[in-house]
Nucleic acid binder design. Structure first.
Lengths: 162, 162
DNA sequence: TTTGTAATGTTGTAGCTACAATTATTGACA
DNA sequence: TGTCAATAATTGTAGCTACAACATTACAAA
């Protein structure tokens, strides 16, 4: 079933506009699948994202700004997110000795164990992804990266200058 | 700049997994551009979505369940969303005479005017979309539709199955 | 008519997000 | 040294979401 049937809209202005809606719609769909899956582990997608980021850096701790930079959804409030994770014992947070403005955050053993457990469950969205081929995934990645490439925002094109 | 640089992650398990992150990331990126644009008009992306849905149905009113079904983000609370729009004078909401369980919702003149005004602004994300070709947009749509095909049972309610 | 069940919305509430204001610390430099 | 700007994180708060419980209405069966 295509996007038109799913949101019951039968005409888009053009393929690009349809693509925008499709990305938003598919993103929301994927997010919800993921959130539903992670709920079993009492963790949100944002928290999961942060934990994986910290695992990637382990054993080197990270500061909040670095974590924010790597997050999928940049707008999440990192301070409070990390606070939740600390409360669950999944991360450590200590004031950095060299620079007391920053805090060093690192994943705990308990956090590592949780991630392993989640990995082992073979999340349903991994299965979902199997529906597209490797070649399709590559092409999808290429197009999405192109879409986000830096806009030539306010620059006047050579043609228009005259 | 590709996804790896943007979220500073240099290895993914495979292309499909990267694609999932890419969709979530690009969706969030696009949402934020859109939200920033719409803020000038004192309206959220969700509210804008509902208004366009109602314009599509005009002059035929719609009930809440129909609107929900067509929304990009199904999880928004439609009752309160419509309440906000009514408060701004952008929609009408009256109890349906035939079936008093349902409410008939329709876009007002003021709502139509607002949408026209927004259309006229040529949203920045329309420019964004120009970065991919028509052929790329078509391919993107095809792959995203394929990805969502065969719904994951656990997240789809009985009602939605059809 | 009464009863049960499905359809349709609304509401309560905990928790989360957006974003601007604020605090604390550091480093540059007159 | 004292002042200023930059960096890093926290907090206040209004508004929004998730989701389950609830209320109302419709309709069919006994």
């Amino acid at each position: 079933m295509g996007l038109e049937q799913e949101i019951k809209q039968d005409k888009f202005q053009n393929d690009q506009q349809k693509a925008a809606i499709n990305i938003l719609y598919t993103g929301s769909w994927l997010y919800n699948i993921n959130a539903g899956f992670l709920k079993k582990f009492d963790i949100t997608p944002e928290q999961f994202n942060v934990l994986r980021i910290l695992r990637g850096s382990f054993p080197k701790p990270m500061m909040l700004a670095e974590i924010s930079e790597r997050m999928i959804d940049k707008s999440s409030n990192c301070t409070r997110l990390v606070e939740k994770l600390k409360h669950k014992g999944l991360v450590n947070r200590v004031t950095c000795a060299d620079n007391r403005r920053q805090v060093d955050i690192s994943i705990t053993d308990k956090g590592q164990v949780l991630l392993k457990k989640i990995d082992a469950y073979q999340p349903s969205w991994i299965k979902t992804l199997g529906k597209i081929t490797k070649a399709e995934a590559k092409e999808l990645n290429r197009i999405l990266d192109k879409l986000r490439s830096y806009p030539i925002a306010t620059r006047i094109s050579v043609k228009d200058r005259s």
